[in-house]
């Protein structure tokens, strides 16, 4: 059903512990190129922890240990020779709450490419990223304004533009709409369809409608375990596991 030819990322037997507590248990999961993969599940099921392991953001949390491998085109992201800073150049991230830098709109997008010395004209790069994030028309006349003056939805699209400006291969999104109103959420979902042309997207969400609307593949996690993974249609309409069915139909617990 899922062809494994074009997997960009592959988690193999991944277990992640906070101190003694295992938040993610023996997860095997492949992320496919230029598809949207949704990870759903109840709060505390380990879906955000799993997402953060894909660009080594768990490195910043104390007492986290990880077993297993995350393969990115056959290289384990956790091999000793791998620089986590380089990993994050390939995997961009958008966070749960909009977190623009307290700087100008332009600087927010330009900072990453600048410090990494990415080639090309920075003005063009910022414009392209803002256009891709469907924010350009709203901000093109006030690029020097503080990003903090934007609305919540605009700030989140700015954060998406900030990730896009780095031209990553994969974009990881950790419940990117949970702090937004329905109109802003709809705009970001539309945006995801556009971005799918060029990027591989992994989105963590506890909004099941969102997962069924936007994703190609859906992974359902519960208590740190991957219960089911497959085509989104199949997971939502013909789940193979009883627990998946209970969750997606709202008969949870």
């Amino acid at each position: 059903m899922i062809n494994s030819e074009n997997a960009v990322l592959e988690a193999r037997d991944v277990t992640i512990r906070y101190g003694g507590h295992a938040a993610v248990k023996n997860v095997n999961l492949s992320i496919y190129e230029k598809k949207i993969t949704a990870i759903i599940g109840p709060s505390g099921c380990g879906k955000s922890t799993l997402l953060r392991s894909l660009n080594r953001m768990n490195d910043f949390i104390d007492h986290v240990t990880q077993d297993g491998e995350i393969l990115y085109r056959d290289t384990n992201l956790y091999d000793e020779g791998v620089d986590p800073v380089e990993v994050r150049l390939h995997m961009g991230m958008v966070f749960q709450r909009p977190n623009p830098f307290p700087k100008s709109i332009f600087r927010n997008v330009a900072w990453g490419p600048t410090i990494n010395g990415l080639p090309g004209d920075i003005n063009l790069r910022v414009e392209r990223a803002l256009k891709q994030a469907a924010l350009w028309e709203e901000v093109k006349d006030r690029l020097d304004d503080s990003a903090l003056n934007l609305s919540g939805g605009q700030q989140q699209r700015l954060c998406i533009a900030r990730a896009l400006a780095m031209e990553p291969e994969v974009i990881l999104m950790d419940e990117p709409c949970s702090a937004l109103d329905p109109v802003s959420t709809a705009r970001i979902e539309d945006l995801l369809f556009e971005l799918k042309q060029n990027y591989t997207i992994v989105i963590v969400t506890h909004n099941m409608q969102q997962a069924s609307r936007v994703s190609d593949y859906t992974a359902f996690m519960e208590s740190g375990t991957l219960i089911e993974y497959g085509d989104t249609d199949q997971v939502f309409t013909r789940p193979k596991q009883k627990r998946t069915e209970d969750y997606v139909t709202g008969r949870f617990g």
């Binding site: 953001m57 910043f60 800073v85 994050r88 977190n99 900072w111 410090i115 900030r162 990730a163 400006a165």
Partner: peptide, 27 residues
């Protein structure tokens, strides 16, 4: 200085020094 700012900076490929110099210290 909110940790979300630090994480945002790391997520675009910053080193620790770049995060401290450009985001932590100015704030």
């Amino acid at each position: 200085v909110p940790s979300s700012i630090r994480l945002a900076a790391y997520a675009v490929g910053a080193t620790q020094w770049q995060v401290v110099r450009s985001h932590v210290l100015p704030a």
